[in-house]
Design a protein around this nucleic acid. Structure first.
Length: 292
DNA sequence: TGCCAGGGGTTCA
DNA sequence: TGAACCCCTGGC
């Protein structure tokens, strides 16, 4: 991975396949903040990092060379050649517009426990409220990291710590509604190793899905998101209401059901289905369905 | 102002 | 298979 260091910042070439807005606003992550200068501050792995695009350069600040190599290269999936993925996907003509539109998307490698809880919260919920709940949970039960640009940042709590919170308190404090029990029970299963995150990485995707769906609050869609956004299972194609609309509008040309859409996607996109999902999701949401 | 629909789905009957 | 679910926001 080629980079240079200037004024304590790590700088890489954008290479037309790294765009902070695309990465953070394509629906995969919740713990980022857009700053007034259009940079993005994001919390992960107990660190706070700021990312700014300047022409064809991407500037990582509030970090250091060691963290960049040990943490962020993996987190931002910098070893994967997205231009190659886009080229392959674009052979299929319908998706080409979506790929061109979200050209700078990358799929992050996020922390597993945080991703599991985040997507349990996402069920039948709205993105601003999801972000708020996750922020409150971190602030109350995570650990203080630092103050950056006037804002305090906290890590996402461990399963051990979150499992000790009462259902009532969590609902009251984090405004998670009926998801309260699911969050606490899942945290307990993970904390007491009934579900072993460490061992789960060795499962094949079919086994992993089955295992994840044992967790309260994790159904087919949430399991898919967890697999794609934190287990690197890039053949996974999460089908939510947005993707359903996009696929119906662009491909199927009529209303259909979720199962069929997943099957269809895997036939067209194969092992690249997960990437395809992200380009389509971003394209569909940003352009608002109906105007495609 | 106040009511109502609907949302990154899952669960339970 | 279908209704119910917390809470919040946007539209009327």
């Amino acid at each position: 991975m080629k980079y240079k260091i200037k004024n304590k910042n790590i700088i890489i070439k954008s290479n037309n396949d790294f765009n902070p807005k695309h990465i953070f606003e394509c629906g995969q992550a919740f713990r980022w903040k857009r700053e007034e200068d259009n940079s993005y501050t994001c919390v992960a792995k107990g660190r706070v990092i700021n990312i700014f695009q300047s022409n064809d350069e991407i500037v990582f600040s509030n970090t250091n060379e060691e963290d960049f190599n040990n943490i962020w290269i993996d987190y931002f999936d910098l070893k994967t050649d997205y231009n190659n993925i886009k080229k392959e996907l674009s052979l299929e003509k319908t998706i080409k517009d979506a790929v061109d539109y979200g050209y700078g998307i990358r799929i992050l490698n996020q922390e597993k426990f945080e991703t599991i809880i985040s997507f349990i919260i996402s069920a039948n919920n709205q993105i601003p409220r999801i972000k708020k709940s996750i922020e409150i949970i971190s602030k109350n039960y995570g650990e203080f990291i630092e103050n950056f640009r006037g804002q305090d940042y906290f890590s996402f709590p461990s399963a051990e710590n979150l499992s000790k919170v009462s259902v009532e308190e969590l609902r009251e404090v984090a405004r998670v509604g009926f998801r309260d029990k699911r969050i606490i029970e899942t945290s307990k299963l993970i904390a007491n190793n009934d579900f072993s995150i460490k061992e789960s990485v060795n499962l094949n995707s079919e086994e992993l899905r089955k295992e994840l769906e044992r967790l309260p609050g994790v159904g087919p869609k949430v399991a898919s998101c967890i697999m794609l956004f934190s287990y690197g299972r890039s053949e996974t194609f999460p089908v939510d209401v947005w993707i359903k609309r996009v696929m119906e509008e662009l491909y199927i040309k009529k209303e259909t059901n979720i199962k069929l859409i997943g099957k269809y996607a895997s036939e067209i996109f194969g092992d690249l289905a997960g990437y395809a999902q992200q380009y389509l999701f971003y394209y569909g949401r940003e352009n608002a369905i109906g105007k495609l």
